[in-house]
Protein backbone atom coordinates (compact mmCIF):
# COMPACT_ATOMS: atom_id res chain seq x y z
CA UNK A 1 0.00 0.00 0.00
CA UNK A 2 2.20 2.82 -1.19
CA UNK A 3 -0.60 5.32 -0.62
CA UNK A 4 -0.74 4.55 3.08
CA UNK A 5 3.00 4.97 3.34
CA UNK A 6 2.88 8.25 1.50
CA UNK A 7 0.18 9.59 3.78
CA UNK A 8 1.88 8.38 6.92
CA UNK A 9 5.18 9.91 5.82
CA UNK A 10 3.47 13.14 5.01
CA UNK A 11 2.02 13.30 8.50
CA UNK A 12 5.52 13.07 9.91
CA UNK A 13 6.31 16.30 8.08
CA UNK A 14 3.44 18.36 9.42
CA UNK A 15 -0.10 18.36 10.77
CA UNK A 16 -1.62 16.64 7.76
CA UNK A 17 -4.75 14.53 8.13
CA UNK A 18 -5.05 10.76 7.82
CA UNK A 19 -7.97 8.53 8.77
CA UNK A 20 -5.98 7.41 11.80
CA UNK A 21 -4.77 10.72 13.16
CA UNK A 22 -6.12 11.95 16.47
CA UNK A 23 -6.63 15.68 16.57
CA UNK A 24 -6.94 16.99 20.18
CA UNK A 25 -8.90 19.97 18.93
CA UNK A 26 -11.56 17.68 17.50
CA UNK A 27 -11.82 15.91 20.86
CA UNK A 28 -12.61 19.24 22.49
CA UNK A 29 -15.05 20.13 19.72
CA UNK A 30 -16.81 16.80 20.12
CA UNK A 31 -17.14 17.20 23.88
CA UNK A 32 -18.46 20.74 23.52
CA UNK A 33 -20.89 19.95 20.70
CA UNK A 34 -22.16 16.79 22.35
CA UNK A 35 -22.63 18.36 25.77
CA UNK A 36 -24.38 21.33 24.20
CA UNK A 37 -26.70 19.01 22.27
CA UNK A 38 -27.31 16.95 25.41
CA UNK A 39 -28.17 20.04 27.44
CA UNK A 40 -30.50 21.41 24.78
CA UNK A 41 -32.28 18.12 24.25
CA UNK A 42 -32.46 17.50 28.01
CA UNK A 43 -34.30 20.78 28.34
CA UNK A 44 -36.32 21.10 25.13
CA UNK A 45 -36.31 17.70 23.42
CA UNK A 46 -36.78 14.61 25.54
CA UNK A 47 -39.20 15.86 28.21
CA UNK A 48 -41.82 16.63 25.56
CA UNK A 49 -41.69 13.11 24.14
CA UNK A 50 -41.07 11.14 27.33
CA UNK A 51 -43.57 13.08 29.40
CA UNK A 52 -46.28 12.69 26.77
CA UNK A 53 -45.54 8.99 26.57
CA UNK A 54 -45.62 8.60 30.34
CA UNK A 55 -48.87 10.58 30.53
CA UNK A 56 -50.36 8.36 27.88
CA UNK A 57 -49.16 5.22 29.66
CA UNK A 58 -50.68 6.49 32.89
CA UNK A 59 -53.95 7.36 31.18
CA UNK A 60 -54.21 3.99 29.45
CA UNK A 61 -53.45 2.22 32.74
CA UNK A 62 -56.11 4.33 34.43
CA UNK A 63 -58.64 3.48 31.76
CA UNK A 64 -57.79 -0.21 32.04
CA UNK A 65 -58.27 -0.11 35.80
CA UNK A 66 -61.53 1.75 35.37
CA UNK A 67 -62.78 -0.78 32.82
CA UNK A 68 -61.90 -3.60 35.21
CA UNK A 69 -63.79 -1.87 38.00
CA UNK A 70 -66.80 -1.26 35.77
CA UNK A 71 -66.77 -4.91 34.72
CA UNK A 72 -66.76 -6.10 38.31
CA UNK A 73 -69.56 -3.67 39.15
CA UNK A 74 -71.63 -4.89 36.20
CA UNK A 75 -71.09 -8.52 37.22
CA UNK A 76 -72.16 -7.71 40.77
CA UNK A 77 -75.31 -5.92 39.55
CA UNK A 78 -76.17 -8.78 37.23
CA UNK A 79 -75.84 -11.24 40.10
CA UNK A 80 -78.04 -9.05 42.24
CA UNK A 81 -80.68 -8.75 39.54
CA UNK A 82 -80.67 -12.47 39.00
CA UNK A 83 -81.20 -13.04 42.70
CA UNK A 84 -84.01 -10.47 42.83
CA UNK A 85 -85.65 -12.02 39.79
CA UNK A 86 -85.48 -15.49 41.35
CA UNK A 87 -86.98 -14.18 44.58
CA UNK A 88 -89.80 -12.47 42.71
CA UNK A 89 -90.54 -15.59 40.73
CA UNK A 90 -90.75 -17.67 43.91
CA UNK A 91 -92.98 -15.12 45.54
CA UNK A 92 -95.30 -15.06 42.56
CA UNK A 93 -95.53 -18.86 42.61
CA UNK A 94 -96.42 -18.74 46.25
CA UNK A 95 -99.06 -16.08 45.73
CA UNK A 96 -100.66 -18.01 42.90
CA UNK A 97 -100.69 -21.21 44.95
CA UNK A 98 -102.21 -19.45 47.90
CA UNK A 99 -104.90 -17.87 45.70
CA UNK A 100 -105.69 -21.21 44.14
CA UNK A 101 -106.08 -22.85 47.53
CA UNK A 102 -108.30 -20.01 48.70
CA UNK A 103 -110.49 -20.22 45.62
CA UNK A 104 -110.88 -23.96 46.03
CA UNK A 105 -111.91 -23.55 49.64
CA UNK A 106 -114.38 -20.82 48.72
CA UNK A 107 -115.88 -22.98 45.98
CA UNK A 108 -116.31 -25.85 48.36
CA UNK A 109 -117.96 -23.58 50.90
CA UNK A 110 -120.36 -22.09 48.37
CA UNK A 111 -121.34 -25.54 47.09
CA UNK A 112 -121.91 -26.75 50.61
CA UNK A 113 -124.10 -23.81 51.45
CA UNK A 114 -126.09 -24.12 48.22
CA UNK A 115 -126.73 -27.76 48.84
CA UNK A 116 -127.89 -27.11 52.39
CA UNK A 117 -130.19 -24.34 51.26
CA UNK A 118 -131.66 -26.52 48.57
CA UNK A 119 -132.21 -29.25 51.09
CA UNK A 120 -133.95 -26.82 53.39
CA UNK A 121 -136.13 -25.49 50.60
CA UNK A 122 -137.15 -28.98 49.58
CA UNK A 123 -137.95 -29.88 53.13
CA UNK A 124 -140.13 -26.84 53.58
CA UNK A 125 -141.92 -27.45 50.29
CA UNK A 126 -142.58 -30.99 51.21
CA UNK A 127 -143.99 -29.95 54.58
CA UNK A 128 -146.21 -27.35 52.99
CA UNK A 129 -147.48 -29.85 50.48
CA UNK A 130 -148.25 -32.27 53.27
CA UNK A 131 -150.08 -29.60 55.22
CA UNK A 132 -152.07 -28.54 52.18
CA UNK A 133 -152.96 -32.09 51.47
CA UNK A 134 -154.06 -32.54 55.04
CA UNK A 135 -156.12 -29.35 54.87
CA UNK A 136 -157.69 -30.41 51.56
CA UNK A 137 -158.56 -33.82 52.90
CA UNK A 138 -160.17 -32.29 55.91
CA UNK A 139 -162.18 -29.90 53.78
CA UNK A 140 -163.18 -32.71 51.45
CA UNK A 141 -164.32 -34.80 54.30
CA UNK A 142 -166.40 -31.93 55.75
CA UNK A 143 -167.92 -31.31 52.33
CA UNK A 144 -168.74 -35.00 51.92
CA UNK A 145 -170.38 -35.07 55.29
CA UNK A 146 -172.40 -31.98 54.44
CA UNK A 147 -173.36 -33.44 51.06
CA UNK A 148 -174.26 -36.79 52.55
CA UNK A 149 -176.23 -35.05 55.28
CA UNK A 150 -178.07 -33.04 52.65
CA UNK A 151 -178.71 -36.16 50.59
CA UNK A 152 -179.73 -37.97 53.68
CA UNK A 153 -182.07 -35.17 54.72
CA UNK A 154 -183.68 -35.30 51.22
CA UNK A 155 -184.07 -39.03 51.50
CA UNK A 156 -185.33 -38.73 55.02
CA UNK A 157 -187.89 -36.14 53.99
CA UNK A 158 -189.32 -38.53 51.38
CA UNK A 159 -189.18 -41.90 53.17
CA UNK A 160 -189.52 -41.11 56.82
CA UNK A 161 -192.85 -42.71 57.16
CA UNK A 162 -192.18 -46.02 55.52
CA UNK A 163 -191.83 -48.91 57.76
CA UNK A 164 -188.68 -50.12 56.07
CA UNK A 165 -186.99 -46.85 56.70
CA UNK A 166 -188.02 -46.96 60.23
CA UNK A 167 -186.41 -50.32 60.41
CA UNK A 168 -183.21 -49.03 58.76
CA UNK A 169 -182.90 -46.17 61.21
CA UNK A 170 -183.47 -48.43 64.03
CA UNK A 171 -180.78 -50.74 62.80
CA UNK A 172 -178.38 -47.87 62.36
CA UNK A 173 -179.14 -46.67 65.81
CA UNK A 174 -178.54 -50.14 67.06
CA UNK A 175 -175.18 -50.27 65.29
CA UNK A 176 -174.30 -46.99 66.87
CA UNK A 177 -175.21 -48.27 70.18
CA UNK A 178 -173.25 -51.43 69.54
CA UNK A 179 -170.23 -49.46 68.43
CA UNK A 180 -170.31 -47.51 71.68
Amino acid sequence: MPALLVVLLREADGPAFTPFSINPGVILWTVVVFLLLLALLWKFGWPAILKSVEDREKRIQQQLDEAERARAEAARLLEEHKKTLGNARGEAQEIIARAQALAEKERQGILERARAEQEQLLERARKEIEEEKEKALLALRREAVDLSIAAASKLIEQNLDSAANRKLVDEYLDSLEKRQ
Binding site: P19, G25, V26, I27, L28, T30, V31, F34
Partner: peptide, 14 residues
Protein backbone atom coordinates in the same frame (compact mmCIF):
# COMPACT_ATOMS: atom_id res chain seq x y z
CA UNK B 1 -17.51 12.50 11.99
CA UNK B 2 -17.74 9.10 13.69
CA UNK B 3 -15.06 7.91 11.26
CA UNK B 4 -12.62 10.02 13.24
CA UNK B 5 -10.84 8.49 16.22
CA UNK B 6 -10.88 11.80 18.07
CA UNK B 7 -14.69 11.96 17.89
CA UNK B 8 -15.30 8.37 18.95
CA UNK B 9 -12.58 8.72 21.57
CA UNK B 10 -14.27 11.80 23.04
CA UNK B 11 -17.63 10.02 23.11
CA UNK B 12 -16.01 7.01 24.78
CA UNK B 13 -14.33 9.26 27.33
CA UNK B 14 -17.65 10.88 28.20
Amino acid sequence: PTGNLAVTGALALM
